[in-house]
Design a binder for these strands. Structure first.
Lengths: 92, 92
DNA sequence: ATCAGCCATACCGAAACAGCATTGGACGCA
DNA sequence: TGCGTCCAATGCTGTTTCGGTATGGCTGAT
């Protein structure tokens, strides 16, 4: 599991469409599709239902989405905090 | 930034020693040393002070450590939750 | 001087990755 | 039925990333 995979998952969950999520992430569709598969393999659970219209979250996906958002938010917070601490020291 | 880098950082922070942290992570010392450098580059802040005895956390490192632990804990929680949801459905 | 312990770096072969092209399934339309 | 469209999945390939080995620089102890 990688942060990239988690970002990909959130984008697909929000777009319900791999191609749109790929454009949003400045990526192409095939790698994004593989990210989702890799996550599902690693978690041992199907996260999306593949429908003709696109992707729809399954219960396991809904559960994972909540954690995924918290992980990404925590990463953002870490970046901000560290830069703040380092900046305040460097800047005086 | 990757989850691997974050794990490496936490291990080094706890061991205060790259070689020991590497053994704990079933890795060798050079890649682990590079993980720390990559993190420092990306964050734009020095996380450790290199001393004769090993590595000591700097203020930016202390700040990052708290977030790093939360990130890893959230990842663990995600794994458990998803497997639980999927398992309870599969198992009946 | 030699040894031991520490982190950093150069180099190399293997694995991972993104993109392109294509496949295959499902639907709408004529 | 046959064609065009929209979707995700897959085969392939060139590049990048990554970990391991070997080594270097530095310091303290004998």
């Amino acid at each position: 599991m990688s942060l990239t995979h988690i970002q990909s998952f959130v984008a697909v969950a929000e777009e319900c469409n791999v191609g749109r999520a790929a454009r949003r992430l400045h990526l192409t569709q095939p790698p994004l599709s593989r990210h989702i598969q890799a996550l599902e393999d690693e978690l041992g659970a199907r996260l999306f239902e593949r429908t003709r219209g696109g992707m729809r979250l399954l219960p396991a996906g809904e559960a994972f989405l909540q954690h995924a958002r918290r992980i990404l938010a925590e990463v953002d917070a870490a970046l901000l905090t560290v830069r703040d601490v380092a900046g305040s020291r460097a800047g005086g």
